[in-house]
Nucleic acid binder design. Sequence first.
DNA 1: AAGAATCTGTGATTTAAATCAGATATTTAA
DNA 2: TTAAATATCTGATTTAAATCACAGATTCTT
Lengths: 238, 238
Amino acid sequence: MGSLQYCEHCGNRLCIYRVPLFSSLSEENLHQIASYIQHRSFEKGELLISEGESTDSLVIIHQGVVKAFRYTAAGREQILYLFSEGDFFGEQYLFSNLKATYNVEALSPVKICLLTKSHLHKVLLTHPEVAIKLISELGKRIAQMENTFQSMGIRDVDARVATLLLDFAERYGREAPGGTLINLPISREGMANYLGIARETLSRKLSKFEDDGLIQSLDLKTIQVKDSDSLEDLAGLS
Amino acid sequence: MGSLQYCEHCGNRLCIYRVPLFSSLSEENLHQIASYIQHRSFEKGELLISEGESTDSLVIIHQGVVKAFRYTAAGREQILYLFSEGDFFGEQYLFSNLKATYNVEALSPVKICLLTKSHLHKVLLTHPEVAIKLISELGKRIAQMENTFQSMGIRDVDARVATLLLDFAERYGREAPGGTLINLPISREGMANYLGIARETLSRKLSKFEDDGLIQSLDLKTIQVKDSDSLEDLAGLS
DNA sequence: AAGAATCTGTGATTTAAATCAGATATTTAA
DNA sequence: TTAAATATCTGATTTAAATCACAGATTCTT
C-alpha cells in the first residue's frame, strides 16, 4: 500500500481545487476542507482497494489512472470503471456500511486525496451546496453509466468497439495533425474485458478498422483516430 | 398525458411517507414537503416522459410499475430500468439543464408524486439530512447498476437469464407453497430487450429452465421459481 | 363470442464470435 | 544485450446465439 504523505507542492489544497465537486466553494471553505484531506501515492500495479475491504473515505484521483474491476464467476476480470484526474469514487460506502464491491488498481503512478466519511459528513451538513454538487455529479455518473449500459446492450460488437475508441479519444486523447492520438490506459486484453468480448475478437476488430482506414495503431499503447466520422457512424451516433 | 390531480386518500402525504428518501424527516418537515408535492396518474401504456423532453421534477413512483427505455441505432428498444413503488428518477436533470435521455412508460396504472427542481432545491438547502439520504440512495443505485453492468458483461446467457429471474423474484415475487411466484411486469420481448438478447433465445432458455425443473411457467405473466439454489448457481452467486 | 391482432414457442439455417492453436512482437529481467 | 516471459496477431474450427419461418396461444376489439 502507498504510504501516507502530505503534498508539499500544494499544501494539501491543489487537489480539491481541481475537483469539480468543490468548485462552488469559497476560498475560505476550500481551505477548511483542505485541512481534512489526506494524500497517498501508489505505484503502477498497486491496489488502492480490495473487494470486501471496508472503506471509510471518498477517494479523489489527483494524478494518474486507476481501474475498478471485479472477477466474474468464470474468473474473467470485468472492468467497471476507469477513473482519472478529477474523478472520485467510494461514494456508495459513505452512508452505508457496505464493504467495497470492487478492486481498484493503479494503472500508472497515482496520487489520491482522501476525505473520510465523518469529515465529508461534516462538510455536507454545513455546506449544502456541496451536497447539491455531489448529487449533481452522481447524476452525471448515472447518466454516463446509462450510456455504457446501453452500449453493452448493443449486440453489434463493431459499434461497441467504436464507442470505446471514441470514449478513449475524448478522455485520453490529444489532438495531432493526422488525427487524435489516444494514449491507451489499458492493454488489448483489458479493453476486451471492459467490453465483455474475447481478446482475439478485439484484435480482429482493430485490424479491420485499421484496414478500413478508421484508425492507425502507432504502437501498442497508441492509436490514432484517422476517421472519427466513420467511427461515430459505426457507434450509432449519427 | 395524465391529468393533474390531488390525492384525496392521503392528503398529499402518503407518498412521501413511503419513500425512503424522506424517511429521516420529522412529521413537521414531512408535512411541509408534502405541500410542495403534486400528484399525477397515468394509464397503462401512457408515456410519463419522452426522450428529449425537458423535465424539471423529481418523480417518485407511488403505485404501479414503469419502464425507462431508449431506442438503439438498430431500432430495438433497450430497457434501462424498471421502477416501482418507492423508486424515484429524474435526479440527473435536477441540477443540470439536460433533456431527458430516455422515455418512461407506464406498464400498469401508475400514480406518481412530483417535486419540482426549485422545491427540492429548497428542501435540500434547509434539510441537509435529506441531501445525505439522496446521496446514499444514488450510491445504492450506482452499486445496483454496477451489478447489472457486470451481468451484462457476462457472455454466458444462461447466467444472465438466471440473474434476471432472481432479480424479478425479489422485486415482483410473493412467497407461495411451491416456490416464489413472479408476477412479470414485462413481456418476453421486454425481458429479451432488457438483457440485450433475441426474444427466441429467451424463450428457449426459459423452456430449458422449465425442462430442468428450475422454474415453472404458470401463465404468460406468472413464473414460479421451483429451484432457486440452482438458479443462483447458474447466476454465478455461489 | 368471434375474428383480428399480437405475442409466444420451436424447428431449420445462417452468422458472428468464442475457442483453439501457433506465429510474431514486445516488454521485462537477468 | 540476451533470454525469458508476456502480450498480440492471425488462421482454422467450433459453438452459441441470431435470424428466418411458421404454428399455436393469448389478448384485444367490436
